[in-house]
Design a protein around this nucleic acid. Structure first.
Lengths: 115, 115
DNA sequence: CTCGGATCTGGAGCGCGCTCCAGGTCAAGA
DNA sequence: TCTTGACCTGGAGCGCGCTCCAGATCCGAG
């Protein structure tokens, strides 16, 4: 299987090498397999996971939230717990969207006022 | 004009006394008028401003962003600059909403998968 | 007038999410 | 073989947004 060096993985994901190592330390990705010499070798699957993590980070979830999410996706819990957890997360995201809409409304009012 | 003590203002706004003072130091609100003895006296208008700040903080804007916003609302810039700034901010918020939707989509897929 | 709770100030401390650094190892090219 | 650059580890440092603290002041109740 073809793998990526840390630099290539950073390039592909848009996440810095340091951050990739940080995510691995925190257990959000990996553990990443190593070469005989100890260098990290990122598989396509690892890259995919980084994408997932990035997606949720951009949505504003914290590292602690993501740890929980990762635990769920790794099937360390019964299915009903997973669904409950995921729904709960979804509700939290909906509230964030609502907060954003409130702020946008204020902005729109000001824009209308100054236009 | 009836005013509120720091404790009452904190209670009304849901923002801690320390944070109210912090926002004032940063210039996001106030300056808050003082009593003869030096105690802060929050007016209804101050409370309103705190609400605005809170609204944008909840939407994920940083203190620095808010400083710019406050400068705009205080009419320290020509109208066209204000509108441009506000539209720019709105676009940034839209991107946040999009990021949230991307994350929610992932969540929905997982929920569907586990259901 | 006294007491105690609320408030004042300046500054230190903290949790988060990286980011950077020192000192050492590995590996491909000249 | 030697050089050079990518990578390794553990740990320090940093910017943000509060949050807390010490020591002093204010002021209403008794």
């Amino acid at each position: 299987m073809t793998t990526l060096t840390p630099a290539a993985a950073a390039d592909r994901t848009g996440v810095s090498i340091d951050t990739l190592r940080y995510y691995e330390r925190e257990g959000l990705i990996g553990p990443i397999q190593r070469s005989a010499g100890g260098r990290r070798e990122y598989t396509e699957n690892d890259i995919f996971w980084v994408g997932l993590v990035t997606c949720f980070r951009e949505a504003g979830l914290g590292i602690a939230d993501l740890k929980g999410f990762v635990a769920i996706l790794r099937a360390e819990h019964p299915p009903q717990d997973r669904v409950a957890f995921l729904r709960e997360r979804r509700t939290a995201l909906e509230e964030r969207v609502a907060a954003l809409h409130r702020a946008m409304k204020v902005l729109d009012e000001k824009i209308a006022y100054y236009s």
